[in-house]
Design a protein around this nucleic acid. Structure first.
Lengths: 144, 144
DNA sequence: TTAATGTGTCAATATGATTGACCTAGACCG
DNA sequence: CGGTCTAGGTCAATCATATTGACACATTAA
């Protein structure tokens, strides 16, 4: 059994994660809202931005949603001219997804907001704290 | 402008937060699913557990949802005998919410899973890293 | 040729959230 | 006292996001 003080400390950590994550997502959420888009659209733009030529399947694995859940917002982004798809050279069933210049603009706006938010926190906390943060997060992010 | 290496590092941080948060919530989510409950129910149980005698209004502010969104799951938890409400002594309009023994059991199961998850990550990373993590998260969690 | 894979789509359904409107009860203020 | 504000509850309409299941098509691999 974990002792009671430690439990309080861990509860504090739970709340930090909860409130930090909320604060982290609500700025991009507000930007997206103005265009009638949601958080899924952001995740799609983000991952295509950071992994150009990702396939639909790759995106599904990253997002951990059903293909039906991905299909509608992805199609919407393509119709809006933010995402382009090219058949892969090696396997023509596969689509390589990329951001169009316009898609890059929006992605940069959204992700930029989050990067500035993180950068401000790292600046305030200091470099060693940033390293600690990354170390802990890396363990948390690892598959269970 | 932030330089390109730094941008990559910040993108890495964005992904850490995304995957860590997902890994953090999906264990309790699976436990709740078996009872037909959702993440809202967990948040309600959690906050009542850590702030006994919180009011409905207080809960609304913590969760940042509409009262209609809170009402149904909260009522459900009361009907299931997991949460009890007493009129506050100072103002009888106000309800003081508490977990019943049965509610405490479930809350401990859910929150315990998250505490063990966090504790494992802190153990693995080490105490100084934990301090860094907390310092950065505290800044991120602070209101914008 | 057959089987498996990547992608797309229709349908039905569930959940969770929103806004708006309206209600009661209790507290507070003049 | 009467008027107003606040805490809480609820109905209704709507929207967004997600699910599973079934099926189609093209392409690749065995």
């Amino acid at each position: 059994m974990i002792d009671l003080d430690r439990q309080d400390a861990l509860r504090g950590a739970i709340e930090l994660l909860y409130f930090a994550y909320r604060g982290f997502t609500d700025l991009p959420d507000r930007i997206l809202e103005r265009r009638g888009l949601g958080r899924v659209h952001h995740r799609i733009l983000y991952f295509i931005g950071s992994r150009p030529d990702v396939s639909v399947r790759g995106l599904l694995d990253l997002l951990a949603v059903s293909k039906q859940a991905l299909n509608a917002p992805l199609r919407q982004l393509m119709e809006m001219g933010l995402v382009a798809a090219l058949p892969a050279a090696s396997d023509r069933r596969v689509k390589n997804l990329r951001l169009t210049p316009e898609g890059q603009r929006l992605e940069a706006e959204l992700t930029g907001a989050q990067m500035r938010h993180l950068e401000a926190a790292f600046d305030k906390a200091g470099a060693p704290q940033e390293e600690g943060w990354r170390a802990v997060m890396a363990v948390l992010a690892a598959p269970a």
